[in-house]
Design a protein around this nucleic acid. Sequence first.
DNA 1: TCTATTTAGTGGCATATGCCAGTAAATTCC
DNA 2: GGAATTTACTGGCATATGCCACTAAATAGA
Lengths: 168, 168
Amino acid sequence: MMEKDQFEDGIWLYCSNSAVRRAARQLGQLYDDAMGDTGLKGTQFSLMSQIARSGESTLKRLAEIMVMDLSALGHTLKPLLRDGFVELIPDEKDRRVKRVRLTDAGAAKQRELTARWTVAQDHFDKAFGKEKSEELRRTLAFISSPEFARAFSGGDEIRGPVPPKGQG
Amino acid sequence: MMEKDQFEDGIWLYCSNSAVRRAARQLGQLYDDAMGDTGLKGTQFSLMSQIARSGESTLKRLAEIMVMDLSALGHTLKPLLRDGFVELIPDEKDRRVKRVRLTDAGAAKQRELTARWTVAQDHFDKAFGKEKSEELRRTLAFISSPEFARAFSGGDEIRGPVPPKGQG
DNA sequence: TCTATTTAGTGGCATATGCCAGTAAATTCC
DNA sequence: GGAATTTACTGGCATATGCCACTAAATAGA
């Protein structure tokens, strides 16, 4: 009955933003649990993993591919820098540019957390289906793409004066 | 080419948590843009809309159906309470319990923002496809469900000692 | 009835995220 | 070459989110 309420009464069935946010909260909690008392969260693990994968990427580039505001990325890196898991390196050609990489300690931590992530990911696949999981991730990647954003923003009409179109 | 990198180099193609988070960031930005200079964000609109829909729900219940930590809900309500869009009402039978509803000002604001939300939602449907949107929202609702969380956590093995299963 | 346990909410602390303003550096334009 | 414009990053402010500790109230158990 309680679960029935969830499926019938929620704006998340009508609003895509809310639906994605709500799912993000659920998964965020589950993946944070998976990290246990390691001192880091699921999101920090993800960030470190992407840093490792991108290989000394510039901050701007990293923020772009993660579809994240540059200053937000800077903020989010703070604890990782503070704890010595990540370091910033100046670019050789452009003094404005910073590059980011894992420290040795960071790489070791990332490996430790990968073991926990693997368990969580297996659990996700078990609960949702492995192939459906891959399909879902591709779908979400499309939604996260510049292509989608362009299609969403079309003629930029939501950025200009908005003619009232209320339901109310 | 840059977009190609996005599709080929990101952990979001392998990690469901990251994928949902990244999509949430994209949509968060787009729906926030849709709210324009109204003084409220997409998330606040969603919260007010769900409050309206739930009808004087208890805080605990609201947090549950939104798959949100109760204290997080309390925090998130603060600016809405402060600005008079939302009010808390004591429960008649249990002095611990608070119920939440929109004020008249809040209801008016919610109607105003609904007009903007409708535009954004139309844009989402245009970019993604209306029927695919509905399907995606159902999928995300399943992921957000207690049923999914139970299947994910089944046996609670990630809550206990975690045997190393590293990739590293 | 009384004690032990559970529950609903609050505040604190910390990370996650985004807009904005400002500075220094690079690029563009005349 | 010099001025105007754009770019990359940093810090500030505010909301978003979650764990934790605590208090008051309700419930469960003896």
